[in-house]
């Protein structure tokens, strides 16, 4: 236990809720916030993966298996929780990189429900448990800026950024900050659809020359959850080594 977290333990335990916490970026965030001294509430729809993630997290971690789009389940679970200092909306689906003419309405609806509505439900249900000084962090994607193909995924992440700005404006009077992180390519299951050759080609396009580790995103979330960022709200931090700057013409 670091001196900082020992101090926290005396002055009152902090609690962090993370959705999609069973693996990938969500698990990376849960591990990082646990090491920061937060007590972790890990949510995921996949109960088996959630059980398996337990070995990476402190024993006192609460594991809650639910679907973030299920209002009643979210409400019932969150009602049992202590006050929350950080809420991380990380649960999300990747969309197939299809042209818009090939997207069927059901796949559009599904991605909007999970990536956008889910974050809305969890935030809204968490708000009564959030005190002055707490923070919401939404995990968007560099893709929110647009891409040829997968317009439903782009729209969902852009919507999450819009929601971040609106909620930040409204919640500033309660001293609750709302920010978003927009990662580029990260080593997660979302890359499983690529062949090794395609993945390697994509990694070469990243300024770092590789996909980021979930831990590298978790560090940014840790900062946005902490008092070190207490003047920052309504912002989206692009975490992609600068790839989203594109080919600057000047």
């Amino acid at each position: 236990m670091s001196p900082d977290s020992r101090l926290r333990a005396r002055s009152g335990q902090r609690h962090a809720l993370i959705t999609g916490a069973a693996r990938g970026i969500g698990l990376g965030i849960a591990r990082k916030l646990a090491s920061d001294g937060y007590s972790i509430i890990a949510l995921d729809h996949d109960s088996e993966a959630l059980e398996a993630s337990a070995r990476f997290l402190p024993r006192k971690t609460r594991l809650i298996s639910l679907d973030v789009t299920d209002r009643e389940a979210v409400s019932a679970s969150l009602n049992q929780l202590p006050a929350l200092n950080a809420v991380v909306n990380n649960a999300g689906l990747a969309g197939e990189l299809l042209p818009v003419a090939k997207l069927d309405p059901e796949s559009v609806r599904r991605i909007l429900k999970v990536n956008v509505k889910g974050a809305f439900i969890v935030s809204q249900e968490a708000l009564p448990r959030m005190k002055s000084g707490s923070a919401i962090i939404n995990i968007a994607s560099r893709g929110y800026l647009g891409g040829a193909g997968g317009a439903h995924y782009v729209a969902s992440k852009a919507g999450l950024v819009g929601m971040t700005r609106a909620m930040a404006a409204e919640l500033r009077w309660r001293k609750i900050r709302v920010n978003a992180v927009a990662p580029g390519m990260v080593e997660t299951r979302m890359l499983e659809g690529f062949t090794p050759k395609m993945k390697a080609a994509l990694e070469r396009l990243e300024p770092e020359g590789r996909a980021a580790d979930p831990e590298e995103i978790a560090g940014i979330v840790s900062f946005l959850a902490s008092d070190a960022s207490k003047l920052i709200s309504g912002q989206v931090l692009l975490a992609d080594g600068g790839k989203s700057l594109g080919t600057m013409p000047y």
């Binding site: 042209p99 809305f120 040829a148 317009a151 729209a155 969902s156 929601m163 971040t164 409204e170």
Partner: peptide
């Protein structure tokens, strides 16, 4: 789409349309 008080649903939907438009521009 830039956000605002009482605009959670409006900012979210407008930002989604902007995201869609930017994707279509590329596509």
């Amino acid at each position: 789409f830039l956000g605002g008080v009482g605009c959670t649903h409006l900012a979210t939907s407008a930002a989604m349309l902007v995201g869609l438009a930017r994707s279509l521009a590329l596509e």
